[in-house]
């Protein structure tokens, strides 16, 4: 059994290392204990700005800091970032200010807090904004590494992290993790399963089940939803001829949307999307939520069979 960890912890560890960069500042909206920016606050309170419970104000304070040469990292729950969408759009994305927004507790996997807390649309809405990089890692190591790369990006970003623990995949594999580059976790010619976040782990399990039935899948951790790794998708489209996308997010507009939009205009092949089917969640344990929403490995296996039946 591999080590288990939460992606939010990777974010917190990265901020703590980024302390060494004097331009890095942290913005909080009363959820630093939850998003894990509190480690930075404890270490460098003079470079941490408490914004109270005021997300709209927080994002634009970030914009003002970025316009003055600082590198602000703002975090709150994914769902609460959405309250400040217009600030992100008009105050950050439009002037292309490198504010780094982290939404933790994203997806239905956030569990028992219920549907009000389960952001299932964050990746979609931020993906529509010009200039904004959208990232959703699957383990603490990649979260930390991708966060560490953000200061060099010089672009605004949105990163979704999660509260609940998931298996650690990238022990001793730091060199594979780069913003904008999907990671092939398995290699197979029959189908490509392109996933992000917690569903990367369900996809790996699905590939194991499929292999027992003679179907070989390439599982991709597409941690960067925007810019999409089009070269990798081109390669997999040619090699596999069929794609299943998997995300703890609405089937509308997220990773599945991004991949579909690209594939339909490049090398059209059958695609099946695993995600939240245009509905809200409810209170349940994280794993129960994945079952309720049809996001488990068996659902991915079923989707693979469907897409293979459509493959010419």
């Amino acid at each position: 059994m591999s080590r288990m960890a939460a992606t939010r912890d990777g974010y917190g560890e990265a901020l703590l290392e980024l302390v060494a960069n004097p331009k890095v500042v942290v913005l909080e909206a009363d959820l630093g204990k939850s998003t894990k920016s509190l480690h930075f606050r404890n270490s460098h309170p003079e470079r941490t700005v408490s914004c109270g419970i005021g997300e709209q104000n927080m994002l634009l304070i970030g914009a003002g800091l970025a316009s003055s040469g600082f590198i602000p990292f703002a975090s709150t729950f994914a769902i609460f970032t959405e309250r400040a969408f217009e600030q992100m759009r008009n105050g950050i994305a439009r002037p292309d200010l490198a504010v780094h927004l982290c939404g933790s507790h994203g997806g239905t996997h956030t569990g028992t807090d219920g549907s009000s807390a389960q952001s299932i649309e964050d990746l979609a809405i931020y993906r529509t904004l010009p200039n904004v990089v959208v990232i959703h890692p699957c383990d603490d190591i990649s979260t930390k590494e991708l966060t560490m790369q953000l200061p060099n990006l010089n672009k605004p970003s949105y990163m979704r992290t999660a509260r609940n623990k998931t298996p650690v995949l990238y022990e001793d594999r730091l060199s594979e993790i780069k913003i904008g580059k999907g990671i092939e976790l398995t290699s197979g010619d029959d189908v490509a399963i392109i996933a992000c976040g917690v569903l990367v782990h369900e996809s790996i399990r699905a590939a194991e089940i499929l292999e027992e039935n003679g179907i070989n899948a390439t599982v991709v951790d597409m941690h960067t939803i925007k810019p999409l790794d089009k070269a990798l998708i081109d390669k997999l489209s040619t090699k596999c001829g069929a794609i299943v996308t998997a995300e703890d997010h609405s089937v509308i507009g997220g990773l599945g949307g991004a991949v579909s939009e690209y594939v339909v205009s490049s090398n059209p092949i059958p695609i099946e999307k695993i995600g939240v089917n245009d509905r809200f969640g409810e209170s349940a344990e994280a794993d129960e939520m994945l079952e309720i929403m049809g996001l488990k490995s068996n659902n991915i296996v079923d989707a693979v069979h469907r897409v293979l039946s459509r493959k010419s």
Binding site: V49, G62, A63, G64, P72, G91
Partner: peptide, 8 residues
């Protein structure tokens, strides 16, 4: 809010 960021 932007002004706050500039002031900070």
């Amino acid at each position: 809010s932007f002004g706050l960021g500039c002031a900070i």
